[in-house]
Nucleic acid binder design. Structure first.
Lengths: 179, 179, 179, 179
DNA sequence: TATGAATGAGTCTTCATTCAT
DNA sequence: GATGAATGAAGACTCATTCAT
């Protein structure tokens, strides 16, 4: 709490004027992070463009969200952010009595993302752009990729250097690897 | 430590006969978990079967590893295991001076898995089973899926119920979603 | 630490606002004790009086320092203080890697006291008050007496009761026992 | 206890076959140390020589006792021994309920040494070798010197190097510093 | 409203002691 | 008799939280 207060440039006690507890800060940060994602995703799905284009944009911007913290104003690095998000997951999954994050929250968040993606996929199938698959599970796979890639990128940034990672990922999702 | 001792059915002090510190337990658990994965993967790549078959087996068994803890002897649930693994990631990514997990360890682990998968992919391309792609990045995408799916499964097990999830994931990886 | 906190009338954690560790308290107490001695000694050597008079005063006040803790405000007894000082010695002499007290500190402290006393002796010799001796070793013997007497006094106060102990000791130092 | 067992070349549990507790070892070591002194002192007072000669021998051998541990067979250094003896003192002086060393023991020990020395002094006075003093307090001063010098010697051995320290100390005790 | 000194519950770790072999 | 694996009481220290100013 002392570190947080110092970073925020306020006194230790002041934090408690705005947050009930440290856990509350954690929860609020979690909410904030997903608000950013939501804003980004909504902005994309409202665009007037093809389903595959929407998918490409979501892949691209999702990966950017984990990264762009390097900006001048931000006080935490991409590495730190990824670590925090993993703690979000780790805590959201705990079975303790004193759950830091409401499991229902996480459940709803992932339902929403899957729904958004499966809607795009369904739309694409209707338009003949995507082939018929279990869109719900395919959406899950896409979400998994968007969760899993940032982890690897933090561990070894070089592998994912160059601006076209998201393009390759998108292509992979699109065409699979089959000959 | 008191809880761990109680679970292990020993006294608090006894743990320190076998582990230097709490962090040491954490590290050892990490090592143990990856030893299991390694054993599984190695067993598969040595089999005499086609690259796509190997890929299918790895996908299947990886997802099983996160799950099978429900067995009678195990004292932790799949949920708990997943939470712990996320802590592994979370800790492995930290920049603190007192790193719980050596970042190089995580780096090497992920390198190894990517190498194993890209070798399979290269082999498949040579055999004309897979189409030519950036096998390194494709391997990354597969790893991401195998990391990301268990998280979602913990949060909402029903979506992934039924024994054929891994088949669908495998199929997704193979053919993509393009029409 | 709990006991110390209770004696100080504060909470356990409060101590750590003022001292880094328990060892730090120990070191600080050591410093404080010698600061008191230093003050006393300096006050005496600056006085305008003969070397033998200075010596008498130092003997008298040194023995008082170990004793006067019985005053109303003090929370530790002379007995406890002596025990603590012996721990100072005991610790200062240890060869462990984690020295509680810097051996150099003790060395400098004793050098200083010997120097002060041998200066007084040298001065007295020059004035013809003291006979020519190895003043450095004689100073050591005086220091030894001032260290050793308090120990015996704690163990058996009666032997040293009466206000004139220091006078007798001073006389012993001065004239020895020879006929 | 593990260290002690290792030094003794026995198992940890074996110690408890011979000592009730760690404190018991401490007490026994204390007893042992003073048995050595006693033996030395008795051997000297039974000699057929003058009181001043006896005093000289006691001074010499007392200082040797703290030092001679450097011998090949001994497992502890002079430094360590001095530290331990200070702990003896420190503990013997404590007022805690669980006194490690019986205060009466220390009291008797010091009484005995003072008695032995004052007897020698009384004898010397009778023989006209020593001048008339308060022999009890003079004995105390001699004991103080024999306690205090080893401490200084540990802290700074060089000051006391050369074999004739005890001679100088003896001379100091005998003739004092007065001109 | 903002603060940070004070707090003590909680945590890891040590180590003297026990006891089954 | 000898052993050392097991033990848990005790202890130093941390840190989220409170509250008087």
């Amino acid at each position: 709490m002392e570190d947080i207060a110092a970073m925020a440039g306020v006194g230790k006690g002041t934090i408690y004027e705005y947050f009930r507890s440290k856990d509350d800060i954690f929860r609020e940060a979690h909410k904030q992070f997903h608000k950013e994602i939501d804003k980004m995703v909504e902005e994309i799905i409202e665009r007037d463009c093809s389903p595959d284009e929407k998918l490409r944009m979501i892949v691209k911007e999702s990966l950017n969200l984990f990264q762009k913290r390097n900006s001048g104003t931000s006080i935490i690095s991409a590495k730190e952010l990824t670590g925090i998000i993993m703690q979000f997951w780790s805590e959201g999954v705990r079975e303790d009595s004193d759950k830091l994050i409401d499991p229902m929250r996480l459940k709803n968040i992932y339902r929403k993302y899957r729904k958004i993606l499966s809607d795009i996929l369904d739309d694409g199938i209707k338009q003949g752009i995507f082939r018929k698959t279990d869109t719900r599970l395919s959406a899950s796979v896409i979400v998994a990729i968007l969760d899993g890639i940032p982890l690897q990128r933090i561990i070894e940034p070089r592998v994912f250097s160059g601006g076209k990672i998201s393009e390759v990922i998108f292509e992979n999702i699109m065409t699979g690897i089959k000959a």
